[in-house]
């Protein structure tokens, strides 16, 4: 409501009527006339329609399905309330999937950031031929998931693979890279980090390049070591980028699917059966849409919580 300075000086009845008229006028000024409404709906309508069909309807359908049992053809038949959720959260199998996903996501995020930062700070040194290394470090950005998986499958091959040849040559015991539950997780983490590295390197390298050189010059004059400069100038200056990269890597880690499907199919003994891969298997292999829906909603909650946590905790330490 807009307040007129003149209304204070006039008598009460007139004042009231006048105010009322003014309120109406101001409401009118802020309310939409028919033409405005038309344009609002014209512009919002298509996106609302598409969001409704492709986002909201599937979301509510998923919620609905997760409260039922689904039959052979995927139709909900028996209402079971929350028992799909209860069964999942009490099954050792699902809790194992949750645990391995956490291990995978945290390891991938930490290693990607650490290695990406290392490569980026190395590449920002001004030495001859550094351009070649900069290209090399960012080269995995152009590699697709399927190519990366096949490439690493060759390396991990137990009979003819590169790693098995090295271990034979050095007389080390052979490692079942993709058949031993512990090593399979390691193999998948290595491959993911390798794939992520190109993108992370490029973003962090760009951030390091944009830190003003005057800061380093001043520090050098003060006699600060290059290690001190890295931790007290570089890291604080690029913290918004680190924050961004950590969120993107973390969420990408939760969504990791192609690599798992091509390399381990969730095995051995479910050691790499991540949450997303489980949903896919339950829905499109086993046809258990009810359980898959419940798993999808649990995953949504987990990702939302992590994102929230990151915004709350990391944001405080970010130096914008």
């Amino acid at each position: 409501m807009l307040k007129s300075p003149a209304s204070d000086s006039t008598s009460a009845p007139i004042n009231r009527a006048e105010t009322k008229a003014k309120i109406e006028a101001s409401e009118k000024a802020f309310s939409l006339n028919a033409k405005d409404k038309y344009y609002a709906l014209l512009f919002l309508g298509p996106s609302l329609l598409i969001l409704g069909i492709f986002i909201f309807y599937p979301m509510f359908k998923t919620l609905y399905l997760s409260l039922f049992l689904t039959n052979t053809v995927g139709k909900p038949t028996v209402f079971v309330g929350l028992s799909n959720y209860i069964n999942l959260l009490t099954s050792a199998d699902y809790l194992n999937s949750l645990a391995v996903t956490m291990v995978y996501v945290l390891a991938v995020t930490a290693l990607t950031i650490a290695l990406g930062l290392l490569l980026a700070s190395l590449a920002s040194k001004k030495i001859a031929g550094i351009g070649f290394f900069r290209t090399l470090f960012s080269s995995t950005m152009g590699v697709s998931v399927s190519v990366a998986a096949i490439f690493w499958l060759f390396i991990f091959n137990p009979s003819t693979g590169f790693l098995s040849l090295i271990s034979t040559w050095l007389h080390l015991p052979a490692i079942g890279w993709l058949t031993d539950p512990t090593w399979a997780m390691v193999a998948v983490i290595i491959t993911t980090v390798w794939m992520n590295l190109g993108f992370t390197f490029l973003i962090l390298f760009g951030a390091i390049q944009s830190v003003p050189t005057t800061l380093y010059e001043a520090a050098s004059i003060e006699g600060a070591s290059s290690r001190f400069q890295f931790f007290h100038i570089t890291i604080p200056s690029i913290s918004p980028t680190l924050f961004f990269v950590s969120i993107v890597t973390l969420i990408d880690g939760f969504k990791s699917f192609g690599l798992i499907d091509l390399m381990t199919k969730g095995g051995p003994t479910n050691a790499t059966n991540m949450l997303v891969y489980r949903i896919y298997k339950d829905a499109f292999y086993s046809g258990n849409f009810a359980q898959a829906s419940a798993e999808a909603l649990i995953l949504t909650v987990i990702i939302a919580l992590f994102t929230l946590l990151q915004f709350k905790v990391l944001e405080k330490r970010v130096n914008y």
Binding site: S159, L262, K265, G267, P268
Partner: peptide, 23 residues
Amino acid sequence: FVNYGSGASAETNEIAAFLADKL
């Protein structure tokens, strides 16, 4: 006995080893 795991990659690996006289 050598374990090649499961899935399509296991089949590829065992055939490759068989043809290379390692199995």
